[in-house]
């Protein structure tokens, strides 16, 4: 399919569309943790690297089939998500943010010293298994399941935790358990995105998954709209395309990211699409007519 597509679409654009898809999956995972449940995670690149390295090593060194390797990478990331989620049982928001940064740093330093991962040089020659169809097929599944989840009992409880933990507890929500759950689900998607990335790029090294990458992902969620699926998608699309357009002024790109965060927080803390939720829109329009 990719061969067919590349006849009609410029490979450069095809590449960008693919990266957009991968970023949507990564950002949806982070949105679940930070946007929906309100647990600031600034180490999403850490989960991404776990998925990337695990799946790449599985396909390269053990001849594991790509889908299985992808799943394996996601599961390893989810497992770490569980352990990172655990401290949230005791920690207030800001401390948690530091722990997530610390975690991602530790992971990065680990891979810098990890023999099978090629240490600082990284891994190259990863089979290019990620296709247009895999990415966008998985995007569709992720969006669908995410939307379903967020309009379910558990999803509402996630939002409730973000809004007021004590009130959520008095509604019978086991907040500690659900916070860990959000971390597990979010990091699973992080690992999935990492695996797709590794098998598209041929090449990964620890620097790809640094603090800047985590912030870039956070920006997507914040720009689009915390807790909103359409918002997260919009954020991922904009922040994948924008840097390409700003390529000429690459130096200023990060500065722009930084300023963007401040300006957004001051003028539009809920992001571009605020808290628009697919489910709400549907119901609102449906019932609005009867009134």
């Amino acid at each position: 399919m990719d061969a067919v597509l590349s006849q009609y679409i410029d490979p450069y654009f095809l590449r960008i569309i693919l990266i957009i898809g991968i970023n949507i999956i990564l950002a949806l995972g982070l949105n679940l943790i930070t946007g929906v449940t309100g647990q600031l995670s600034m180490g999403h690149a850490g989960f991404m690297s776990l998925g990337a390295y695990t799946s790449a090593i599985l396909t390269m060194n053990y001849g594991v089939a790509f889908p299985t390797a992808l799943l394996g990478g996601s599961l390893v990331a989810a497992l770490f998500g569980f352990f990172i989620g655990l401290p949230t049982l005791r920690l207030q928001g800001d401390y948690l943010a530091m722990v997530t940064i610390g975690f991602a740093e530790i992971i990065r330093v680990f891979f810098l010293n990890f023999e099978p991962g090629g240490k600082a040089v990284g891994l190259s020659g990863i089979p290019q298994e990620t296709t247009f169809l895999t990415v966008w097929g998985l995007v569709a599944v992720a969006v669908f399941l995410n939307a379903r989840l967020l309009s379910s009992r558990t999803g509402r409880a996630f939002y409730a935790i973000r809004e007021d933990e004590i009130a959520a507890e008095s509604c019978g929500v086991n907040t500690t358990r659900l916070k860990v759950t959000a971390f597990v689900l979010g990091s699973f998607l992080g690992g999935l995105g990492g695996g797709l990335y590794a098998h598209y790029m041929f090449y990964i090294d620890p620097q790809v998954f640094n603090f800047t990458k985590s912030i870039e992902l956070l920006n997507m969620v914040v720009l689009g709209g915390m807790g909103s699926i359409p918002g997260t998608i919009l954020g991922a699309v904009l922040l994948t395309i924008l840097p390409e357009l700003l390529r000429v002024v690459a130096e200023y790109r990060l500065m722009f990211y930084g300023a963007l965060l401040v300006i957004l927080m001051i003028f539009r803390p809920n992001g571009l699409l605020g808290d628009v939720r697919i489910y709400d829109l549907k119901k609102r329009w449906g019932l609005g007519k009867n009134k």
Binding site: M42, I215, Y257, G258, L261
Partner: peptide
């Protein structure tokens, strides 16, 4: 959370 994100923005 907003204040914290703003602080990260300034840092970058």
């Amino acid at each position: 959370l907003s204040a914290l994100i703003s602080a990260i923005g300034v840092s970058i």
